[in-house]
Design a protein around this nucleic acid. Structure first.
Lengths: 229, 229
DNA sequence: TACATTTGTGACAAACCTGTGATAATTGTT
DNA sequence: AACAATTATCACAGGTTTGTCACAAATGTA
């Protein structure tokens, strides 16, 4: 599994290479935008890690141009590296075809997780279906987002509803702190208790026999919610 | 949930210990690199907080060496403490296996959030449950705030009641000074003896067989309260 | 023993949490 | 572009929790 690492900062590039090698990938290095394109043309890779800020030349000024260029000819997953305050960079990069991004500085574990995540998402062959959840006669298939229970009709959940239910089922029998749930569903800086409340409501409407007397989704005041095992 | 705190600055180390204890962790202290390794070898911990700049000895010169050493044998999450301008420190530390870092100076809240975050990331399910407390046939589950004792019905405690009981159980068999209890439950500038009194009353109403003759929660006049082991 | 302080108790007010409904904004599909 | 579906935002209500005040009982000290 080859990973192309594109970064003009050699220290960081070495760190990235070290990290990826440690996780079973074979790193291929490029230290500028033009070099990245050259390397990419002769060496097929499975994923690209691409620093946004990097010297280039006319027509290949920075990481964005590299991203765009690669995207013209390839579907390879691309992860952008950017600094914390450059959220505009992120949006631009994603609109140019990048698949994900990681904010500097980052932990090795986080980076590897992201790489694996984009590989999972982008590979039709490598896609491994998630196991359905089963609790007695209750079933939830995260791949189809389909919920089944006796006494109720099959329900197709929306994206956020499915994310929520999956997280609660993964930790069935526990009450999960609201902040954990929010972070999991909406990301580190997204969401609110109010949004969670509304999502809980919508999910209950779909999966409880009587949403006013919930049996599956429990609340502990001041703490959070959980799925009763 | 045990946290190993490694810092040669004893004042800061004590503050860290206080902060972590307040958030439900049990702090284990080490004040030098060699001591950290010795402690780590005999005491399993759930997370390590590690100051980068710290006196050591050949082979264990500073926090980085500790990090590297620990990483050889363990996947325990490691958080580095470092000063603002040492981004190279961060990269080095991360390349040696640390999971995250916190820049000095930092707020207690930020540190706790980071600790919980790395624990969450390192847990496959994304949630860590706290251990229940058991004293004979008496049980208290802080996750559900549920109190059980023979001869009484199960009680769900409120947030503050649970905070109080947990703190007393963590220090069972001792009389805790009122000001410490108040600080723990309401924060450094919150609370009052009057509020504590009322909270004690409410907790006793829930967990004592006869609240007028308390057996579990004891008072030492002029000092404070404690949970009888 | 007398008095001061601490602790226990009860009652009510203020604040908070969660459920619910409605509408606006955003996203996805044709 | 039009429409449908999903998500976010706002508002309100009911129930619970916490804070505040007042008074009684217990404890400690001179």
């Amino acid at each position: 599994m080859k990973v192309l690492i594109v970064d003009d900062d050699r220290t960081l590039a070495d760190l990235l290479a070290f990290t990826m090698r440690r996780s079973g990938f074979e790193p291929i290095m490029a230290f500028s935008a033009p070099e990245a394109i050259r390397v990419f043309e002769v060496q097929p890779v499975d994923v690209v890690i691409l620093d946004v800020n990097m010297p280039g030349e006319p027509g290949l000024r920075d990481g964005f141009d590299v991203c765009q260029q690669i995207r013209k000819t390839s579907d390879v997953p691309i992860i952008l590296l950017t600094v914390r305050d450059d959220e505009e960079d992120v949006v631009s990069g994603l609109s140019m075809g990048a698949d994900d991004y990681v904010l500097k500085p980052f932990s090795p574990r986080q980076l590897v997780a992201r790489v694996k995540s984009v590989l999972r998402r982008s590979s039709p062959k490598g896609h491994i279906a998630e196991e359905p959840f089963t609790f007695g006669e209750i079933k939830f298939d995260p791949n189809r987002r389909e919920f089944l229970r006796p006494g109720g009709s099959p329900e197709t959940l929306t994206r956020l509803e499915a994310l929520l239910l999956e997280y609660m089922m993964l930790n069935a029998g526990q009450i999960l702190p609201a902040e954990n749930i929010i972070s999991h569903v909406w990301g580190p800086d997204g969401g609110s208790t109010e949004m969670l409340r509304q999502l809980i409501r919508r999910l209950r409407m779909k999966i409880e026999l009587d949403p006013t007397k919930p049996e599956l989704i429990q609340n502990l005041p001041g703490i959070g919610y959980g799925f009763k095992a």
